[in-house]
């Protein structure tokens, strides 16, 4: 077994590689943050309507979750990228095609809708872990259903779910790498490009890996701190 490889780390600081890396890191972070915010919003709505009493709303919620969870993200990306524009009415399709950054917008759409289904599942299990008596207490005091969710259920469920919400950001963050297949210049695609141009794969992929790992570590530390700050006094954290 032989391992022959000439390392050249300084090359990463030279153009065009430096430019590619900066663009890749920026795009990855920007895309993930935006998609995360959208996914949380949609996910909270879907998760909550799955807990309502209306069978129709519940069905819509369940159908959404099953649909987006059981199709691989990469396939969803392709459907949004290749098929979705064809399904639009003709003049809509023309305006869609005139949009700037279509790959980025498509990636945002696919990542948010996919992750919203996961968030909805977390929301549902978070809400079902709340004792039924909490609903009774809130109902008996004359709060409306909307108020019960807004003031009692969601704020509490949110605290319970901080770790999962954080890990969903990391899921999006890692899944955003898939968008290189439709031409988004995120960090993995930058690394791939550097490898293709320079044949220095180890250096190239190290940049991407370091980006993912440092971000993951940062988010994990930050969430530990946040969880501690939002800790409900007197309650012992469930392990």
């Amino acid at each position: 077994m032989t391992f022959k490889y000439d390392f050249d780390w300084p090359m990463l600081l030279e153009d065009p590689y430096k430019e590619w890396i900066i663009e890749g890191v920026t795009t990855t972070i920007y895309l993930s943050l935006l998609a995360w915010v959208i996914a949380l919003t949609i996910g909270i709505i879907i998760g909550t309507i799955r807990m309502t009493r209306s069978p129709w709303l519940r069905f819509i919620g369940t159908a959404y979750v099953e649909f987006f969870r059981n199709i691989p993200l990469l396939v969803q990306l392709f459907v949004w990228f290749f098929v979705f524009p064809l399904m639009l009415p003709h003049d809509w399709m023309l305006s869609w095609n005139r949009l700037p950054h279509i790959p980025f917008i498509t990636a945002l759409l696919a990542l948010s809708l996919f992750t919203a289904a996961r968030v909805a599942e977390h929301i549902r299990s978070g809400i079902s872990s709340i004792p039924k008596g909490q609903f009774d207490a809130a109902r008996s005091s004359g709060l409306t259903e909307v108020q019960i969710y807004r003031y009692v259920i969601i704020p509490y469920a949110f605290r319970v779910m901080i770790p999962t919400i954080a890990s969903e950001f990391l899921t999006i963050f890692k899944n955003s790498a898939l968008t290189l297949t439709i031409g988004v210049s995120e960090i993995t695609s930058s690394a791939k490009a550097i490898e293709a141009w320079s044949f220095h794969g180890i250096e190239a992929y190290s940049v991407a890996s370091v980006t993912y790992m440092t971000t993951t570590a940062t988010v994990v530390l930050f969430m530990g701190w946040l969880e501690h700050r939002l800790r409900i006094p007197g309650l012992i954290a469930k392990k």
Binding site: Q134, A137, R139, S141, G142, L143, I232
Partner: peptide, 29 residues
């Protein structure tokens, strides 16, 4: 809801809202 707000109820397991202070629990409704 409005009718219920004229009837107080006390539960076996208290059912205070764990994420709020006692004062916020009382003033919510």
């Amino acid at each position: 809801a409005s009718l219920r707000s004229n009837i107080g109820m006390v539960f076996q397991h208290f059912e205070l809202y764990p994420h709020m202070t006692i004062l916020d629990n009382i003033t919510l409704a």
